[in-house]
Amino acid sequence: MVKRKPEELGEVATSKGRGEEDESSDDDMDMLDVDFEFFDPQPDVDFHGLKSLCRQLFDLDAQLFDLSALVDLILSQPTLGSTVKCDGNESDPFAFLTVLNLHQHRDKPIIQTIIKYLSSKASKVPNMSGLLDSTGSSSRHEVGLILTERLINMPAEIVPPMYNMLMEEVEWANQDNEPYTFSHYLILSKTYKEVESKLDAEETRSSKKMKKSKAVGDNTFYFHPEDETLHKYAMAYGNFDYTSVPDEGRPDSKRTFNDLGIVPQGHLILIERSKFEEAVKAVSQYLQPQA
């Protein structure tokens, strides 16, 4: 099913390629017309694309989860959540956003694994500890786990429509007495920190023993720029280290444009239901396309 296509989307800025003969400014941009379409999740065509995006979202710890079971669960609720495509319904999604009721699905093995995992990570975040441990049958909390990911070159302007459509779909589901009356929304995301490059260090310390990669400053950088806006409405948020240990050369395999390595981290944002609509409006204002 094709959803409403936001009229604001279509013209996307991309960096202009520069060769040896191009002495133009780094600020030069080309404008591309890209026709984004928003779809309901399609069980017949989206399994592999969603699995790839979920693997990207969970990053180093993706191997800890049965991603096939997770995607099957996402696709079992096709009227909730969105995918974004550029080449029609039969193509792979470039982005997705959905919500899973951790209370409703607490008996499913994949959700049990996710709850256990996120509980351990949330235990180190103030005001978040213990919330996921209380998703049992007698709990007053119904946590909606928001999963969203996109290809690295997707424009952030696609995010507000997905959140707005999600709010509408949750409202419609509640009118039909479906189990989506959440008390809290928990958003799983990713951040990263920059570290000194070991490749550069090896060039200057060829005869010395290599030291562990060292973080450059204490700044956190965001793969999803909307996260910083969501923080303003959250009751809790914080980073966490992945359980799986990265390979020694992995930070350099993800070097950024300024030649630093990067170390990704997981990120959690917890928003009460009463603040969620306001948070989505703020994201829409922050990411509205530039005139």
Rank of each mutant, 00 (worst) to 15 (best):
L57V: 04
F36M: 04
V170G: 01
S15G: 13
L67E: 07
G88S: 07
Y192P: 07
L132I: 07
S206I: 14
P6I: 06
F240V: 12
V84T: 08
G217S: 12
T243C: 11
V195L: 04
V159T: 15
I115D: 06
L147F: 01
V143N: 03
A234W: 04
D66K: 11
E203C: 09
T98D: 03
T191K: 04
L186T: 00
N153R: 02
A291K: 12
H224E: 07
V280T: 05
G136L: 14
A236L: 04
S253E: 10
K214E: 13
A215S: 06
L50G: 12
F58M: 09
Y163P: 05
F47Q: 07
T220F: 03
A279Q: 02
N177L: 03
P251H: 00
N219I: 09
D200Y: 07
S213G: 15
L73Y: 03
N258R: 04
Y237D: 04
Q56G: 05
M1S: 12
E178W: 00
A156T: 13
E7D: 06
E157P: 06
F257M: 10
R140S: 14
S134D: 09
W172C: 05
L9I: 14
S139W: 10
S123R: 13
H141S: 15
Q77T: 15
D30W: 07
G130D: 02
K212M: 10
T256S: 15
S284Y: 08
Y180D: 00
V2W: 00
P289Y: 09
G81R: 06
C54D: 02
E149M: 11
T220N: 08
S82P: 12
A156I: 12
R205M: 15
Q63P: 09
F276W: 09
K193D: 13
K198Q: 14
F65K: 02
Y237T: 05
E194R: 13
A173I: 10
M235Q: 03
Y242Q: 13
Q112E: 15
V71F: 03
G249I: 13
S207N: 10
T229Q: 13
K198C: 12
V12G: 08
L70Y: 01
L166S: 01
G88Q: 04
Y180V: 05
T204F: 14
E178C: 01
I146F: 01
Q104S: 12
I74N: 00
S123D: 15
L145G: 04
S129D: 10
W172L: 09
P264E: 10
Y185Q: 07
E171D: 11
E178K: 02
L50C: 08
I110K: 01
E226Y: 01
T181D: 10
A122I: 04
G238N: 08
D259Q: 03
Q288W: 05
R140L: 10
E90P: 11
K209D: 11
K85A: 15
S189Y: 01
Q290V: 12
N174C: 14
E149D: 12
A69E: 09
I187M: 06
E21Q: 06
A234E: 09
I114D: 03
S52G: 11
D26W: 02
G217I: 03
D92V: 12
P93R: 03
S139K: 13
L260G: 01
S91R: 13
S52I: 10
L100S: 05
A173E: 09
Y117G: 15
